[in-house]
Design a binder for these strands. Structure first.
Ligand SMILES: [Mn+2]
Ligand SMILES: [Mn+2]
Ligand SMILES: [Zn+2]
Ligand SMILES: [Zn+2]
Lengths: 139, 139
DNA sequence: AGTCTAAATAGTATTGATTCCTACTTAGTT
DNA sequence: AACTAAGTAGGAATCAATACTATTTAGACT
């Protein structure tokens, strides 16, 4: 139905960055990295292509609590941990919880595209620096 | 540790709106409703108090795909359905999945504050109007 | 190989929910 | 009644993301 998009050097480079990264990257970071080789690349182009790639299910995105969108190459569905302090995102390697999808199917007229389980809290490194701060405060 | 906040007529009214609503409301909607009785209420005040009430666990919030924050009175933990078309949010009445919390606890230095499972898709009413649109297009 | 056109891009302006700022007000303690 | 830290109103600022527009380009078709 939806036809295949035309090739673009820029989109290809964006996808390549994500293929070779095992984390979750922001659009401006992708832009920064590609600028070294494609000095004319526009940030708007990065955003436009990321949106397109996501709708083609080649990549996926997740937002942190500050509404910043992080992108990664499409992987097996998995869950995420979002740090409330630094905004960093980490993968959780526990099996996907599919029960929701099957549970809601009785509500037949819903169309479910994505199930996201996200834990919010304070990550290891932020937690440690928090503790250190408390110690120094007590003096 | 954190001391109880001072009483405020505005905060009380905001909480009252949420207590008497079973849905998920945006800050501007709360503002609109309260303006009828408190014409001088500032939208910034609504946002500030919603943030405070949430940190006191009296209310909770969830964002739709357009980053708009919806608020509700604190309830038993539950999951949500977010419509990609209209941005509306609905509760899912299936039992909370706690396994993630217990699974990750071995990663001891994480602090988990919130577990959110959210389904993204097209809600019943949007789905129906989508179908009607397709029918009219085929003429 | 040249022509054509819809899709893509660069660069910039705009959006819009939320937060910040500051002078003023007020709850509540002494 | 006086004091003060917390809260408010109103408006400005923020900033990730999107919209806009003139220009370029992939790739289809002669
Ligand atoms: Mn991931
Ligand atoms: Mn809810
Ligand atoms: Zn962190
Ligand atoms: Zn909908």
């Amino acid at each position: 139905m939806t036809k295949k998009p035309r090739y673009s050097r820029q989109r290809d480079a964006i996808l390549e960055i994500l293929k070779n990264d095992d984390g979750h990257i922001e659009a401006p970071e992708i832009h920064r990295r590609l600028r070294k080789i494609h000095p004319k690349l526009s940030l708007a182009t990065v955003y436009r292509n990321l949106a397109q790639l996501e709708s083609l299910k080649k990549i996926s995105s997740i937002k942190n609590d500050s509404n910043i969108n992080f992108f990664e190459i499409y992987r097996e569905p998995h869950h995420h941990f979002v740090c409330e302090k630094c905004g960093g995102i980490q993968n959780l390697t526990y099996p996907t919880i599919n029960i929701c999808t099957s549970c809601i199917s009785p509500h037949s007229n819903f169309k479910i595209n994505k199930v996201a389980t996200t834990l919010h809290g304070v990550c290891e490194s932020c937690n440690v620096s928090q503790k250190l701060l408390n110690i120094t405060k007590s003096f």
